[in-house]
Structures are given as structure tokens and as C-alpha cells.
């Protein structure tokens, strides 16, 4: 499979603060990458860095973002504009906020078509209608003339997905697109997106804090903590045999039917504020396995080429069992 996107040592800073620190991952055509982490771990900032939509004063301060071999980190603003929505699309977290409340749906879709294609309004409108139909919006022709407030949250997210899919992009960055929806709608949107990207062979970066979503959706998972990817690998090995104590803690804190009656495990402490990152491993303040070396030295990359973790003492089978009990 062809590599579409190759992010290499990406650093994103807000003033002196590094919100994303040496993040590397690659995305092959048709692949789904789950980017997991708590609030403030830098997962959304990573997504916004790739499409270069960082809020001031955020800026990419290092590394490369190779998209089809072209470095987006040094691309011009006009060059980025031509890629956005066209080759790289984005879906946002809160569907109530992503559509402009004072413009008709068709206005917002037609302009998206015409930003990248030289077509007339009628043709653009036809494409918009087909896109709405494809994401499962009933009677798309009539819905085109509606305003965003006349849609429910789930429907608005479908509209946003339809807009993202208009130009059949190579990559879609989805920033927690189901978090703001209620559970039944979440499941619908999830399976809809899964079907659509599979049909079109679109690569997907799915940013979420919800491991159970990733389990069913992603081919590979990257776990972020304090601006770094601490564990990275194919979904099943990462979820079944987590190497990093943090990933392990996250998995332990997901409620599951198999452990009814047991206390839910939790990771002690709270996420370190990113501007007061401790020396050594950023997770050592909350890690039960931390030794002296963790407090002083930056952790090395451990284990094989496919499944990696940033840890001095990656979890072994025995230790995992010990922590679970």
C-alpha cells in the first residue's frame, strides 16, 4: 500500500510551549489511524497541524509533514488552501458549531465544491445533493434549502461529513466527531464513516479519547500523552498487549462487561500541564513502575518496528496481570 502521509518529528509550539513534541506517524492509502489521548495530550493540535489550521499563536516549529512527498510544513498559504477540503479534509468535534448559522446548507456546500472545481452553480448543487444522499440524509434536494438550525446534531454531522467527502480527499482528519453526539447517533455516524472511507479508499485519522471507538474502527493506534506519541502500533497488539503503562491504564479504565463487580481501574493523578512538563519521562509522576531513571532520562523507544513504546520498562505479561489484579 502506498504511503499518503508521512509525519516526521512534528513539533507544534504555542509561544514557548511545545504542545506537540516530535510526533511521527505515517498513513497508508485506505488506512485508519486512531489518535488516542486525554484532553490536552496534543492529539487535536496534531490534527490541526497536518491541515495547518492552528489558532494563533500556534505554529509548526519543527519536523516535516510529507503529503505525497510534498512538505506541508513549508507549503504556502495558497498551496494549503488548494489542498484543504480538496485532498485533505477535516471533520470537527461539535456539529452544532461547524456550519455557519446564517447561510443555507446549499450555499455552504456549493461554495465548497466551487472552491476547487470550475463548475457552474447548478452542477455544484447537483454534486452537493448527491453527497448529502451518500451520507444518508433523506430527501437531500429539500434539505439543501434548509438552514443548519433546522437539522439535529447527528444530521449536521452528516452534512459536515458530506462536505468533507465532496472532493474525494486522500485523507480525512476527524477530530472527535462523535463526542458531542448521543450514543445511538454515535454508532450510526461511526458505521457510516467506516463504510464511506472503505468504499472510497480514503485514509482516515480518527482523533478520540474513546478506546472502544478505536477498537472497532482503526487499523493502527497512536497513543498520545503530554504532546508525545507514547505507544504506536497495529490496533490489536496495542490494545491486547499494551507496552506503555499509560496505554495500559487507559485500557484498564474502560468499563467492560467481563469485569462486572470489580473496581474500575484508574490512572492516579491528573494530566500534567504541558508548560510544566517534568524532566525525564512525562508520565513518571503518575506511573506505578517509575524508577529513578524515569525521572531524569528521556525514555527510549522500545520493542519492534511495528509496535513501539516510549518507556524504560515496558509492560511484560506478568506485570500486566499484576496491575490488573
Amino acid at each position: 500500500m502506498k504511503t499518503i502521509l508521512d509525519v516526521c518529528d512534528l513539533c507544534t509550539s504555542f509561544g514557548p510551549v511545545r504542545a506537540v513534541d516530535r510526533v511521527s506517524f505515517s498513513l497508508r492509502s485506505g488506512e485508519v489511524l486512531g489518535l488516542v489521548g486525554e484532553s490536552g495530550s496534543g492529539k487535536s493540535v496534531t490534527g490541526f497541524s497536518v491541515i495547518r489550521l492552528l489558532d494563533q499563536p500556534g505554529h509548526i516549529s519543527g519536523g516535516r509533514i510529507l503529503f505525497h512527498g510534498r512538505d506541508l510544513a513549508s507549503e504556502t498559504e495558497e498551496g494549503m488552501r488548494q489542498l484543504r477540503g480538496n485532498r485533505i479534509a477535516m471533520i470537527f468535534q461539535d456539529p452544532m458549531m461547524t456550519l455557519n448559522p446564517v447561510l443555507h446548507i446549499d450555499t455552504q456546500m456549493v461554495e465548497a465544491v466551487r472552491a476547487h472545481q470550475k463548475v457552474g452553480v447548478a452542477e455544484a448543487r447537483r454534486q452537493a445533493r448527491d453527497a448529502l444522499g451518500a451520507v444518508g440524509i433523506p430527501s437531500p434536494e429539500e434539505r439543501l434549502a434548509a438552514y443548519p438550525h433546522q437539522f439535529s446534531g447527528g444530521m449536521r454531522q452528516r452534512v459536515a461529513i458530506a462536505i468533507a467527502l465532496l472532493h474525494n480527499p486522500d485523507v480525512i482528519i476527524a477530530d472527535e466527531p462523535t463526542t458531542a453526539l448521543d450514543v445511538t447517533i454515535q454508532a450510526q455516524i461511526l458505521s457510516e464513516v467506516q463504510r464511506l472511507v472503505r468504499e472510497r479508499n480514503t485514509s482516515l485519522i480518527w482523533i478520540t479519547h474513546d478506546l472502544s471507538v478505536v477498537a472497532g474502527l482503526a487499523d493502527r493506534v497512536a497513543v498520545m500523552y503530554s504532546g508525545r506519541i507514547v505507544e504506536h502500533g497495529p490496533t490489536d497488539p496495542v490494545l491486547d498487549h499494551a507496552l506503555h503503562p499509560y496505554t495500559h491504564g487507559l485500557i484498564g479504565s474502560v468499563p467492560s462487561r467481563n469485569r462486572r463487580g470489580q473496581r474500575l481501574a484508574q490512572i492516579p493523578g491528573t494530566t500534567m500541564s504541558i508548560d510544566r512538563r517534568p524532566p525525564g519521562c512525562p508520565f513518571h509522576t503518575r506511573c506505578a513502575r517509575a524508577q529513578d531513571v524515569c525521572r531524569t532520562e528521556p525514555p527510549p523507544v522500545s520493542r519492534g518496528a511495528e509496535h513501539t513504546a516510549l518507556c524504560f520498562f515496558p509492560m511484560e505479561e506478568a506485570a500486566r496481570l499484576e496491575v490488573v489484579q
Binding site: L53, M97, E111
Partner: peptide, 11 residues
């Protein structure tokens, strides 16, 4: 967000 989304559309 809708301004950010408009930019994400490549307008």
C-alpha cells in the same frame, strides 16, 4: 468553529 470549518473547506 464555523470559520475554521470554512477554512478547512479550502475557501
Amino acid at each position: 468553529d464555523f470559520i475554521k470549518f470554512a477554512r478547512a473547506k479550502g475557501l
